[in-house]
Lab assay of single mutants.
Amino acid sequence: DRIFMTRTEALEFLLKAHQTAVDKIGHPSHKQTPADHAAIEALDRLLLDVRARRVDQFQINASAAQIIVTD
């Protein structure tokens, strides 16, 4: 599946995904793992790359739809 978004929409989408990941590892019942921190770092890099126009398409994980940034 493909989803087309403007750059602004894609950045909002990534910010929400980032916040969800941060909230998940901050929850008291969740045991933090290196994979959790790696996922947040990957989202940080992706946010910067989309914002800087170095990336025009991405996929958060293998089961997610491919996001295509349109400007």
Rank of each mutant, 00 (worst) to 15 (best):
L47G: 01
K31E: 13
H27W: 10
D44L: 14
V50N: 00
D1M: 02
A38I: 10
L43C: 02
P34T: 08
P28D: 12
R54A: 05
A38D: 10
F58C: 01
V55Q: 04
D36S: 05
A42N: 09
L48F: 06
D23F: 02
P28E: 10
I3K: 05
I3P: 01
E9S: 04
Q57R: 14
N61C: 06
L46W: 02
A17S: 05
I67K: 01
H30V: 07
D56C: 12
Q59D: 03
I25P: 03
L14D: 00
A21D: 01
V50C: 02
L43I: 13
A62E: 13
L43H: 00
D1I: 03
D56R: 13
A39T: 11
T20A: 15
T20S: 14
R54W: 04
A35R: 07
E12G: 06
K31H: 13
I67S: 00
H37W: 15
Q19A: 11
D71T: 07
K16V: 07
T33G: 09
T33D: 12
V55T: 07
F13M: 08
K24W: 07
D49M: 12
R7S: 03
A42Y: 15
Q59T: 09
E9Q: 13
D1N: 03
D44P: 01
H18M: 15
V55P: 00
F4K: 04
T6R: 04
V55E: 02
A62Q: 10
I60C: 06
H30R: 06
K24P: 03
K16I: 09
M5G: 00
P28K: 09
D71G: 07
A64Y: 12
Q19D: 05
I25K: 04
A62C: 06
Q32V: 15
L14S: 00
A38G: 05
T33W: 07
H27Y: 08
A65K: 09
Q32L: 14
V55I: 13
G26S: 15
I25T: 06
P28V: 08
A17L: 14
V69K: 01
L43A: 01
V69A: 02
R2E: 04
E41L: 11
H27K: 12
E12T: 07
L46Y: 02
E12D: 11
A21V: 10
K24C: 05
R53Q: 10
